[in-house]
Write a protein that binds this DNA or RNA. Structure first.
Length: 110
DNA sequence: ATTCTGACGTGGG
DNA sequence: CCCCACGCCAGAA
């Protein structure tokens, strides 16, 4: 299952993101040891639809900004999904991002 | 094969 | 906090 490709690795972590929680691309990249290649994480997300259902809306940049919301079906779909989980999003910016932040490197006990 | 882009991150000012 | 420049690697044209 794992190690099938770069996407698969990213998906495995993203899927493990608990409800109402958020993480950043860099955190995931860091989990693989690709700390400098955070872009690849987002790139893998681009193929998330290809892989299946992936909670990409729970993945944002390090500032907690919904940078990828533009890639979803609608324009505010990503924000609605986050708000649906109890997350407050204002102007594409997640409020209390530091509290909702979920670090795989820490939570998954690397 | 080369070139460019891209849902990012970090460092310096 | 903001802005600017560099790095990073995978995939598409």
């Amino acid at each position: 299952m794992a190690s099938e490709g770069f996407f698969e690795k990213v998906y495995e972590v993203v899927v493990q993101i608990p409800y109402g929680r958020v993480t950043s691309y860099g955190a995931i990249a860091n989990y693989f040891g690709a700390s400098g290649s955070a872009r690849m994480v987002g790139w893998a997300m681009n193929a998330c639809g290809k892989h299946g259902q992936v909670p990409a809306h729970r993945v944002v940049n390090r500032k907690g900004l919904l940078t990828g919301k533009h890639h979803f079906d609608g324009t505010n779909l990503m924000q609605q999904l986050l708000e649906s989980e109890g997350i407050v999003v204002i102007d594409n910016q997640i409020q209390d991002f530091d509290k909702l932040f979920w670090d795989p490197r820490k939570e998954l006990s690397f």
